[in-house]
Design a protein around this nucleic acid. Structure first.
Lengths: 110, 110
DNA sequence: TTTATTTATCGTAATATTGCAATATACAAA
DNA sequence: TTTGTATATTGCAATATTACGATAAATAAA
């Protein structure tokens, strides 16, 4: 199939997996790290920094934009990208409620 | 291609995306949530709880085991699964260093 | 207008993922 | 030994993902 049966899961579960899926490729992780590392918006140097072809980078940027984690701003010929701060925060909250589930009280049989 | 060029990325970037990829499917999120919700190990009820066929669940469990987030224990005919606590903690630390990058000092042009 | 520069889109090939039926495996109980 | 129960594996079809060459679109500069 290749198609997840997302209708049988909760909205929360689908939200978690949608965000996680975006982080599930090292190029997108690298793009986001670069956006954080340079203390402003990024215009164009991503292709050189990451080491993938320009259409590939453009495609990864599109996916990051689709889930709302980055936003772009046209500056003449080039486009500047930066982290979408509010959405990053709410994504963190969604992911953290999942990651921070209580692990200490488990009776471990394994 | 369908094949990520992981050799051009850092170990850390690959580690983050490997963990995130596992969370990138709602069934695996649901399995983990169920492992957390029931205060002990899970033997067999996952197929009923999740609503996917038994081979599909078995495959998702295998992927969770491969990245080390769960471990299994044979109990007669059935197999009990639980969260791998130490590995869950180290996974959290890897993911959180990524998610907790400083966002406040950015000069936002977008 | 022409040319150069930058980013997006299209098309396509290679590979990965998801899901399940069929079947195998492993063990317990009768 | 035979039967039943639980999980894993195999094989396959449908779809998704990744990557990139070719090209389009949009704007700036000459």
């Amino acid at each position: 199939m290749g198609l997840a049966k997302s209708e049988i899961f909760t909205d929360k579960q689908n939200a978690i997996s949608t965000f996680a899926k975006v982080f599930g490729h090292p190029a997108r992780v690298a793009i986001l790290e670069h956006l954080f590392a340079t203390n402003t918006c990024i215009c164009g140097d991503l292709v050189d920094v990451i080491g993938l072809a320009q259409p590939t980078i453009s495609q990864h940027l599109k996916e990051l934009k689709n889930v709302g984690l980055i936003k772009g701003n046209v500056e003449g010929t080039s486009v500047c990208y930066c982290i979408h701060k509010e959405n990053w925060k709410s994504m963190k909250s969604v992911i953290n409620t999942f990651l921070d589930q209580d692990i200490t009280t488990k009776t471990d049989c394994c």
